[in-house]
Structures are given as C-alpha cells and as structure tokens.
Design a protein around this nucleic acid. Structure first.
Lengths: 245, 245
DNA sequence: AGCGGCGATTCTGTATACAAAATACGCTCC
DNA sequence: GGAGCGTATTTTGTATACAGAATCGCCGCT
C-alpha cells in the first residue's frame, strides 16, 4: 500500500523521457492513457471497482497518480470494450455483470474464433505447442489463476496462424469481456471452469484435418463456459455494490 | 461556409441546456464528444480529411467550434472504429485505405451478419419491408448516394429481428468501416456497387426457409463489394495526400 | 414522522494552460 | 550548392481551471 494517495503531478516529475523512449530502436513511447487503461482493466478484473459501482474520476485519478485527462481517455476506451458505461451527466460506472451480456458475447466469440481458425494451415510444431500448453492446463488443476492463464494462452496459440489483425483485435476485446465474467465467477463461486478435455478434442480434430468438427468442438468449448456462468448470473453474483462512488 | 473559423468558446456561450435536455421526458443530453464524433465521421466519409492525411487538433477543433478535449475524445472513439490511427508523439491521422484492411473487414462482416441473421424468425411483414427497400434500391440506379443509402437500410432491416445488442453494435462499427471504403470508391471511380439482384435472391431464400442458402448468398453479396474494391485499392486510390497537417 | 424545497457541496464535461517533443528553418561549414 | 547542426516554432500529451448539473443534507412544513 505505502503512499498510494499520490497527488497527480507527482508522476509527471519523473523528468524527460517518460515510459520508454527513442524512435531509432523501435522502442515506443507509450501514452499514459494506455498504461492507465491496462492498470484499470487489471483492477476491474480483480473486482476492485466492483461491477455496478460508480467511478469517481477525481479520486481514481489521484489513486493512479495521474490527472483526469488520461484517466478519462482510458475510461472511454474501456467503454468501447464493454468494461464501463457512461450515463450522460453522471459519469462512468463499471458495467454490471448480466446474463444478457454473457449470452450476447459468447456466440460472437465462438463465431469469430471459428473464422480465425479457418484461416490456418497447421504446421506440426504449432499443434505440439497447443498440446504442450494444454498439458500445463491439466496440471493447473484447481488453481483458478493458473488455469485461466493457461486457457488464455491456449486460445492465443490456437489463433497463431491467423493473419487478420482486425479480427484478432476484435477477438481479443471480446475475450477480455468474457475473461471479466470468468474471473468474477471463479472468485465468487470458488469453482474453476476447466477445458482440458475439450482442448484435447479440438487439437485432435485439427490434427486429423477435420475442420468442421474442430469448429463444432470449439463452439461447444465456449458454450460450456457460458453455461457455467448463466445460473450464477441469474442467481445474482455476490458483491453487488450499487454506488461505491 | 460563412464564418466557420469560430474560436472554441463561441459554442459554449449557447446558454444552459445544450444539446437537448430534461431527464423526465427520456430526451437525453448528448455529450459534445458524441456530436463531434458524428460530424467527424460524416466529414471523413466525404473524404474531407483525406485518408492518410494528418490531423491537426488545434485547427480541427477551431473549425468545429469546440475545444481540443471533446475533439480528442471523439478521435479516440474513431480510432477504435478504425477511422483514425495515432502515432505516439505525432498525433492522429486518417487511416489510409488499404486492400489489407478491406480484406480483413469484409469476412468479419459477413460472418457476424450471418450470426445475426440466424437469430430470426421471419414474420411476413418484415420480409415485405425488405423487398420494399430493395425495390427502391432498384430504382436508385446510378445515383451512388441513394443506392448506398438504400443498401444500408436494407441490411439494417435484415437484422431487425436480432436481439443481440452487442452483436449489432459490432456489425454497425464494421459497416461504417466498410462504408468508408465504398463511398471513397464510388466517388473516386464514379462507379456504383449495386446489390439489387443479390438482395432479391437473399430475400427469396429467406422466404423459402432455406437458411444455409441465405447465408451463402449474404456472404457472396459482401464478397462482391470486396471484389470491386480490391483492384481499385491495389492500383492506389486517387487523392492520396500524405500530410495535409 | 415523512415529504418537499432550498442552499451548499461535489462531480462531470469542457475549456484552457503548460511542458516536453517534434518539426521547421536558417545558418554555418565544407 | 549541399549537408549538418542549433535554434525558434508548432504540436502533442497531460495537467489544471472553470461552469453548470447533479447530489446531498438540512430545515421547514404538513
């Protein structure tokens, strides 16, 4: 915790050349809003500003040690990604978790991931990589964090071959939205959604060149997650603060 | 035209209650950034800041009669939608039209529109609406503006039945990106992409309940547009200004 | 005691200020 | 005449200021 109530300008005193620098090396100066966005997303995935809670710009900016400007820019980005919403004179609030949203997102996810998968051409080595990651997932067992991490990695490897950058970005954004649901579910219920067997099946369908089957299995895989979430969402996930403004 | 070099604060003097007001009636106060975003999108669709051109925030803000703050917020939104991009210390520029992007977008479009279409349940009246709009498209003939307008309407009517709001938003954003390509193509080449016959075929497939066929035709419909665009994009669309900063 | 109105306070939305980086420009030196 | 360098200017990215709206709390009234 230490002294995290830093006033905004503190950070700015860091001297010239902020995040990283120099154009020659290919190292990029990242705008503050990007870093703020990442930090915020992290925190929200941990439920820090809880779903449904209002967001006080001034306070949050101070906590993060930046001014309201990059914070608002980050929040507007998160709005696009479905993490927060705004009501016209009342500012930002964390998007509540709803069965409706979950039911909307997952079909998009398996549809788009299917599209991305169809691109491929599967060299041997990449399939092996998939199976290696999945093995680790198998070992992760009940450790929710590690399991989710492996799951994310596995799906990333699955799309390795896809060259459609816009598609990958869209999928990544949707996955973040889904990820938010899954982390909250796991923390709240203590249960872990595990896809070990399904991943094996998908990989073996790919290995045998049966693409339609792979796509069906992939959809089924996502659908399982959704079906875990639905009863939980309907029964009202715990920790519903309405206005921790 | 008249005196459009208004300094920023001018607009703010409009007195209390800006865009529209009162919460009781359901009329919403729209944030300035939203209006700016719409205006910018309109202009960019007309090629006003041409693809590839840099954007000078100060100048553009003055032209629009607002300060840089809501302008930047609008531009960040347009970045998400693929209209604009930023380079870390160099600000915004209009995203160039590339065959690569077109090839990335259209498949997403037909895939997601297909997903949205599968939701339906097609009551008679809605099919009739589709055909009515398409009839108007048939009459529009060589008038590029009217034709595109009808096309957009037709696709909107096609998704009328879909209740997945997130999906509809994603589709709308993608359509805007595609729309940008098509308007530029038509203005630049003088040609009009017309989907009259294909729309008829899709509607009749729906009428006869042949969903897979409708989906195939829908994909084909988008693919035609893409195939018009590709040679044009490769041969380098006219008016490529690099830095009208 | 509950309800409604009114003033004080907080907060958002937008405008402006400011520092550092990028660019443009001219000047010197070869 | 051209390349290189150093300075002036512009422009972005971020911080701050400010106005108006929303919210909160208190008080009086019923």
């Amino acid at each position: 915790m230490s002294g995290s109530r830093a006033r905004a300008p503190d950070r700015a005193r860091a001297g010239p050349g902020r995040g990283a620098a120099r154009s020659g090396t290919g190292i990029v100066r990242t705008p503050l809003r990007s870093e703020v966005r990442r930090r915020l997303m992290d925190r929200m995935l941990r439920g820090d500003p809880a779903p449904g809670a209002g967001i006080n710009e001034g306070r949050l900016a101070a906590e993060l040690g930046v001014s309201r400007t990059p914070l608002r820019e980050a929040l507007l980005g998160l709005e696009w990604e479905g993490f927060v919403r705004t009501e016209p004179g009342r500012g930002f609030s964390v998007q509540p978790l709803t069965s409706r949203e979950a039911e909307e997102i997952y079909p998009m996810l398996w549809t788009l991931e299917g599209l991305a998968l169809r691109a491929g051409g599967w060299p041997r080595g990449q399939l092996a990589e998939l199976e290696r990651i999945n093995a680790r997932l198998g070992l992760a067992g009940g450790d929710a964090g590690a399991a989710l991490e492996c799951d994310v990695r596995w799906h990333r490897a699955l799309l390795e071959r896809c060259r459609n950058r816009s598609l990958l970005e869209a999928i990544a954004a949707l996955k973040n939205r889904a990820y938010r649901y899954e982390t909250h579910y796991m923390r709240d219920s203590g249960r872990v959604i595990t896809s070990f067997t399904q991943h094996q099946a998908i990989a073996s369908a790919i290995r045998s060149g049966d693409e339609p089957e792979a796509l069906r299995l992939l959809e089924a895989n996502w659908r399982v997650s959704l079906e875990f979430l639905e009863p939980w969402l309907r029964s009202g996930p715990a920790r519903e603060r309405k206005a921790t403004q």
